[in-house]
Computed example of a mutant assay.
Amino acid sequence: MALVSQSTGENPVPATTGSPVPAGTQLQVGGEQRQLRNDEKAAALLLALGPDYGKPIFDELDELEIRQLSRAMSRLGPITQEMLDDLMIEFVTTVSSNGSLSGNTDSTERLLLSFLPQERVDAIMEEIRGPAGRNMWEKLSNVQADVLAAYLKNEYPQTIAVVLSKIATEHASKVLAVLPEELAMDVVQRMLGLDPVQKEILEKIEMTLRTEFMSTLNHTKRRDSHEQMAEIFNAFDRQTEARFITSLEEINRDDAERIKQLMFTFEDLARLDMPAIQTLLSRLDKRDLALALKGASDAVKEFFFQNMSSRAAKLLQDDMTDMGPVRLKDVDEAQTRMVATAKDLAAKGEIVILKTKSDDQMIA
């Protein structure tokens, strides 16, 4: 069973049989020494065996074991010579090899196709290749609520009830809220009386969602790219933001202006109304506030002072004076934390921040 890597570049061959290692097994020289877990040991061994020798073992495994083993294969990565030696010694008695083994999604899929039907392999690999290996219900929990609701509203209420019972509770509430009211109430009643769903029915629903919805999701309405980029720019420090905006203005001024309109910056805090700024001030760290205002414009400073009591404003000014010179980096970080706090309050519904700068009013 020892695997020998030929210096001529030809396919490695099992030393005892003389037949080539199957194409599904990918051998490379190198790798980093590490301790293998039990599932990784099984994955490495079966990859080394290949489809001809591995099929009888796979035939004895159930669906869950095959999925677990396939996932381990796809994430195995490089296996050093010493690791491969130790692995083979554990299962047999001796081994002699100069190669190393690497498991990836392609080699896993080729091996599975040698003894499983295409449909079953597709289902296994789709789960492995999905974001962080998430299953169908976890993926649906990350689909925009309005997009998922637009698809589900054309389904039977019982089907909608099953889907909403399987996805994350918080996301189910968002989807339910945007469904037509009469349909939503029908779904609520069905969810209240929902019995355990038969495995065959659940698998059929999953397959339908996979083929009719998830596969075409890329063609549905996507989030506005300018809005997404504005959030990225918001996370920049001041110098980086200015550099990117300036460069973008030279390339496409319209894009730059659109992003600037969508960005919510530290200066925009001065556009909050009195109840909103009072809520924000009650949640801020006093040192962060003093540090942030050290680098603020006179207008922004005055705005904050006017929304505080005379005593509080005087104490804050004294704190700012006592700080002396401060690093611009520290000021930027403090201002970023203040903006983040405002956004968190908005997300919790405690204040409302309108999306664009063309809207002059922000409501608490």
Rank of each mutant, 00 (worst) to 15 (best):
A276K: 00
E231M: 11
N38S: 14
G295C: 10
A15R: 11
L36W: 02
E231K: 13
T17D: 09
M207G: 07
R37T: 15
L291V: 09
D288K: 07
L345S: 06
D298T: 07
D360V: 08
S7G: 02
L328V: 13
A123K: 13
R253M: 12
G50W: 02
E250C: 07
A242N: 07
L69N: 11
A177Q: 08
I245E: 08
E200F: 03
P180W: 00
D52K: 15
V147S: 07
K166Q: 15
R271D: 11
E119W: 12
K357F: 04
H171I: 09
S225L: 15
V175M: 04
V339S: 05
R120V: 13
R327T: 02
D85G: 00
G349P: 03
A184T: 00
S173H: 14
L262A: 02
P20Y: 11
N135T: 02
R190S: 12
I205Q: 04
T105I: 11
T336I: 12
K221W: 01
S70Y: 05
K294W: 00
L315R: 02
A177M: 00
R243N: 11
A342S: 12
T211I: 10
D146V: 05
E126D: 14
E90A: 15
G77A: 10
I57D: 01
R210K: 11
D85V: 13
G50N: 11
R210F: 04
M263H: 08
R253C: 01
A270Q: 14
D288Y: 02
D322R: 13
D146F: 00
D195P: 03
Y151P: 01
A42D: 01
E82G: 14
L280H: 08
N154G: 13
N252V: 12
L354T: 08
V187G: 02
E32N: 11
D52E: 15
K355M: 04
A235F: 11
S215Q: 04
L354G: 01
L140S: 03
T80K: 03
R311C: 04
T208D: 15
V326L: 06
A346C: 09
S70W: 03
A172W: 03
L289M: 12
E63Q: 14
R37Q: 07
V4S: 06
D268H: 06
R243H: 12
L47H: 03
G295M: 11
K329E: 15
A184Q: 07
S310G: 06
E350H: 09
P196S: 15
M1A: 03
E257K: 08
E126L: 09
K357D: 10
G130L: 05
I277F: 05
G295L: 10
S247Y: 02
N11P: 13
Q26Y: 11
E249A: 09
P51G: 09
M125H: 05
M323S: 12
M1L: 10
P180S: 13
G349W: 04
F244E: 06
E212G: 02
L176N: 12
D288H: 05
L61E: 02
H226V: 15
M362N: 10
T8E: 12
Q158Y: 08
Q68S: 13
R223E: 14
L47S: 13
F264V: 06
Q361I: 12
N98C: 02
P180C: 04
P325E: 11
